[in-house]
Nucleic acid binder design. Structure first.
Length: 558
DNA sequence: GACCACCGCGCG
DNA sequence: AAAGCGCGCGGTGGTC
């Protein structure tokens, strides 16, 4: 059963009950204020799949009113997937002209009090769009697989909204202590004192009294004048130099980064009432990974993770999927030898034991090189040995790279399809066009290879993102049923006494859990990971172990 | 003053 | 030790 929600004008909403093909049966019009009550009642009695234009618009106000939903379909996210999906090519949804459903999502609601209508016009008739999408899935090559992708993407959108709602527990006090400890104290508007002292040392060592070390061009000039043979001010180049300025400069750069990215200003802007509430952009990356908008949620430096602390009586349960991408590659390629290596808790050790490489380091760089398309250094050196040991797995990424180079599109395990290469002058045909100059041809080939590295990585990174969404979806259900024993139904705050997800970082999840449930949550994270593996790869025989830590500070996990 | 490209670095 | 993939963000210095 689907219930489609649509915005009407004048603060009204229409709820339309549809069957699984998207055919409407009955409908109800109501005031926006009445929506949370309707959703809560319908949820309890019928457990439908809610269908709406976008979760980021509809769900936050429901959460703010204390209503959690179990299942949803985010039509805008699904439209984007179906538009490009090779499996649905030829269906009307792939060929119809661009319309409002293709428009980028409106900015996410802040504060949870705004409904979709107030964030910009809704894209149109949601009932019709649901029917179009259901028809496209039904007509596609693998309806079940594509349907799983749409469901996974949608559950991701629910989790994103719920995590923003709950927030990542954050101690401003601890954060300030970390800043003072590392950067020094700041009085007035100038640099914190440890940074200012370092800046002065840099000026002294370079003999450049007026130098502002924050200015890359000025710094580069000063470095060159002082006799350092560097072409840039980047860390890896500086590290090769033997000069007394290097140590204070690298230290200064580290502190400067911390000050500008996660300093006092960031704290004031992003942490309120003991919570950091980032805005996640589900499907914001071409591969299907999430992006974030503001706050740099997906770049939280390790040095600041000591400020992430649970509420009194609660714990953080931090789980990290070990070697996710190599395991995904083993599973999707059906490479029996690599799958065997993937049965080890540490897959890189498993690869060492297979005899293909000498040590863990080689296994790691070799695998990353295979997945990213490394052409130099250690990863290139071990590539031939990996190819001999794991022909099916290496064949899969090589094929993906060739497909990209030759302008064929590639797809993830669940059918997310890579975009077509841009229409730039240097693209595609120029590589083979005899009338082009040598330079043009070289550049085109360069671009083709670069696109090949993208498609090579797309299939693995994208499938890993699909695994992660299945993991979080499975975990979300378990957490909710676990919490049922703790929280009275219909509590105003759905997560007040229940373990709930608070952070997601590509292959890592954090649950904020009542202390007495922490171990049970840890087990749920492991079980959900295994479940996600079976969901995607029923026959692969690859394990998806997660490292779990129950901690009082995020920094203490691993 | 608004906008943009580039650099450099944080994360996976 | 860095490289090959995917991102977001702040600072600087250029353009309009």
């Amino acid at each position: 059963m689907h219930v489609v929600l649509e915005s009407l004008d004048a603060g009204a909403v229409r709820a339309v009950w549809c069957d699984d093909a998207g055919t409407p049966a009955e409908e109800l019009e109501l005031d926006r204020d009445e929506l949370p009550e309707l959703v809560a009642e319908t949820e309890a009695e019928e457990s439908p799949r809610w269908v709406w234009s976008d979760t980021a618009g509809w769900y936050p106000p429901l959460l703010a009113a204390g209503v959690r939903v179990d299942r949803a379909l985010d039509l805008r996210l699904c439209r984007r997937i179906l538009r490009l999906a090779e499996g649905a090519a030829g269906t009307p949804i792939a060929t119809l002209p661009r319309d409002a459903w293709d428009a980028p999502p409106p900015p996410a609601a802040q504060g949870g009090g705004l409904f979709e209508l107030e964030r910009g016009a809704p894209p149109g008739d949601a009932v019709a769009e649901l029917a179009r999408q259901r028809a496209a899935v039904a007509a596609s090559r693998e309806p079940g697989v594509l349907a799983l992708l749409l469901a996974a993407e949608s559950v991701g959108s629910l989790v994103a909204a719920e995590m923003s709602h709950a927030g990542l527990p954050w101690s401003a006090e601890r954060h300030r202590a970390i800043l003072e400890d590392l950067l020094g104290s700041r009085d007035g508007g100038s640099r914190p004192d440890r940074m200012e002292a370092l800046a002065q040392r840099i000026r002294d060592e370079l003999g450049a009294p007026g130098l502002n070390p924050d200015s890359a061009p000025a710094l580069l000039k000063a470095l060159q004048v002082a006799g350092l043979g560097v072409q840039s001010t980047s860390r890896w180049e500086l590290q090769e130099q033997r000069h007394p300025v290097v140590a204070p400069l690298l230290e200064y750069k580290k502190l400067h980064r911390m000050l500008t990215a996660n300093g006092w200003h960031w704290l004031d802007e992003w942490v309120h009432d003991g919570r950091f509430r980032p805005v996640y952009v589900v499907g914001g990356v071409v591969t299907g990974r999430w992006a974030s908008d503001g706050g740099g949620a997906l770049q939280l430096p390790h040095s600041i993770r000591g400020a992430v602390v649970p509420d009194p009586g609660w714990k953080l349960v931090v789980a990290d999927a070990a070697q996710l991408e190599p395991r995904v590659l083993a599973a999707m390629s059906g490479d029996a030898a690599m799958a065997r290596a993937g049965q080890a808790v540490d897959m890189y050790e498993g690869i060492v034991r297979s005899g293909a490489v000498a040590d863990r380091q080689e296994a790691k760089y070799g695998m990353l090189g295979a997945i990213y398309g490394g052409t130099t250094g250690a990863s290139a050196r071990v590539l031939p040995r990996l190819t001999r040991a794991f022909p099916a797995a290496m064949g899969l990424v090589e094929r993906a790279a060739r497909d990209g180079e030759q302008d064929r599109r590639v797809r993830t395990w669940l059918g997310r399809t890579s975009p077509r290469r841009g229409e730039g002058a240097a693209d595609g045909p120029a590589a083979y066009d005899e009338t082009r100059t040598d330079a043009e041809r070289r550049r085109a080939q360069q671009d083709a290879r670069s696109w090949g590295r993208f498609t090579r990585n797309f299939v693995v990174q994208g499938t890993a993102a699909e695994w992660a969404m299945c993991w979080m979806g499975a975990l979300r259900s378990r957490l909710w049923s676990m919490g049922e024993r703790e929280a009275p139904a219909g509590a105003v705050e759905p997560f007040a006494r229940r373990p709930h997800l608070v952070f997601f970082l590509h292959d890592e999840l954090i649950v904020h859990a009542p202390e007495e449930l922490a171990e049970e949550v840890a087990e749920a994270m492991r079980v959900s990971a295994a479940q996600a593996g079976r969901m995607l790869f029923p026959a692969a025989g690859v394990e998806f172990p997660v490292q779990v830590a129950v901690v009082d500070r995020y920094a203490d996990a691993k």
